[in-house]
């Protein structure tokens, strides 16, 4: 009798474990634990046993019943949880999330900050200066000859004879040097203005990053090496930098610098107009007149300066074709960054 109870118990356990749906589980419950189930049958066999054996066997039956009911409940829960039985417990995980937006940096400022990071790494402080300047800092101190065609290129906005909107960040060179002795090592990010009508490729407002280093023993070779390092920081180690003579009143020798086109690698493509080069800005050795103007000893100190336009760079970087995009305030634009 005891033996058959144990066999039945094992059998029932296996069956309950094997049930994979609640319906199957219910069928097994009826088979073993139901009113006409197998355990009930065995219990009915109790009366056929000798009187003295009945308590022990009865106890075993009860114990087995409890164990199987516990297992049954356990299995029930397990199957129910696997199935998510009630609709209110189920989420449509494909609905969109509802978190606060996290907005991105403005593409122009992001580009400029990447540039600044490189120069911070090279030991350059970040300086700033006024956007509305006086004539002295904007032109005279930068060695612009009075009434010279070099001024035409600047297309300056004037407020008064002596007050104007800076057309380049170079003005800040003077303000920085007026305040300190060499060594000077700064970059100057900032907004500049030029009398230009606004269209897809022109704008009266633009951003520049200016660099200035003045110290003993600074050479044109140092300028080349520095801008090569900068270009590598922006475009990767494969980039090449090209320098060709140019003219700026405040530097001499002066150079225009370009990098090998990062789209085509210098072979020539639509982006670089087939030249293989992308012009990035102007550079040169600080003109001795400029250094002398701020009271530096020009025999002891030499220096270099450079200026990079940010817009063109950011346009290439993000694939922006219209410069007005940068100043649009269109959420459909801004949320892309």
């Amino acid at each position: 009798m005891e033996e058959s109870i144990r066999q039945l118990s094992d059998q029932a356990r296996a069956a309950l474990e094997a049930a994979t749906t609640e319906e199957e589980l219910e069928a097994e419950r009826r088979r073993f634990l139901g009113r006409k189930g197998l355990l009930r049958e065995i219990r009915q066999g109790l009366k056929d046993l000798p009187e003295e054996d009945r308590p022990a066997v009865g106890k075993l039956i009860n114990q087995t019943t409890r164990q199987l009911e516990a297992l049954l409940e356990q299995r029930r829960q397990k199957l129910a949880s696997g199935k998510a039985a009630f609709p209110e417990d189920r989420l449509d995980v494909t609905l969109p999330g509802r978190a606060p937006l996290i907005a991105g940096k403005h593409p122009l400022l992001a580009t400029m900050e990447d540039m600044i990071e490189i120069f911070l790494g090279l030991g350059y402080l970040v300086a700033e200066g006024p956007e509305i300047e006086d004539y002295y800092h904007a032109f005279e101190a930068l060695n612009y000859p009075e009434d010279h065609p070099a001024m035409d290129e600047q297309m300056t906005f004037y407020v008064e004879d002596d007050v104007l909107l800076r057309s380049q960040t170079s003005t800040v060179q003077i303000r920085v040097m007026e305040k300190q002795e060499p060594p000077v090592r700064v970059v100057v990010p900032g907004r500049c203005y030029r009398r230009d009508t606004v269209d897809a490729t022109h704008c009266h407002t633009f951003y520049q990053l200016e660099g200035l280093l003045v110290d003993e023993g600074i050479t044109f070779a140092d300028l080349k090496g520095t801008l090569q390092a900068f270009a590598e920081g922006m475009f990767g180690p494969e980039v090449r930098v090209r320098f060709r003579p140019d003219f700026f009143p405040f530097t001499e020798p002066s150079a225009e610098f370009a990098v090998s086109c990062f789209i085509c690698g210098g072979v020539g493509c639509r982006v670089c107009s087939g030249t293989g080069w992308l012009e990035l800005g102007g550079a040169g050795m600080v003109d001795p007149n400029v250094l002398a103007g701020v009271g530096y000893d020009t025999e002891r100190y030499t220096g270099f300066a450079f200026g990079v336009g940010i817009e063109r760079f950011a346009m290439l970087r993000y694939g922006i074709k219209d410069i007005r995009v940068f100043y649009s305030g269109d959420m459909r634009v801004l949320t892309q960054f």
Partner: peptide, 16 residues
């Protein structure tokens, strides 16, 4: 300009 070498200026004396 291409024939002029490329060097880096000596390091500044303060972290930026």
């Amino acid at each position: 300009y291409d024939s002029i070498p490329m060097t880096l200026p000596r390091a500044g004396n303060a972290a930026a």
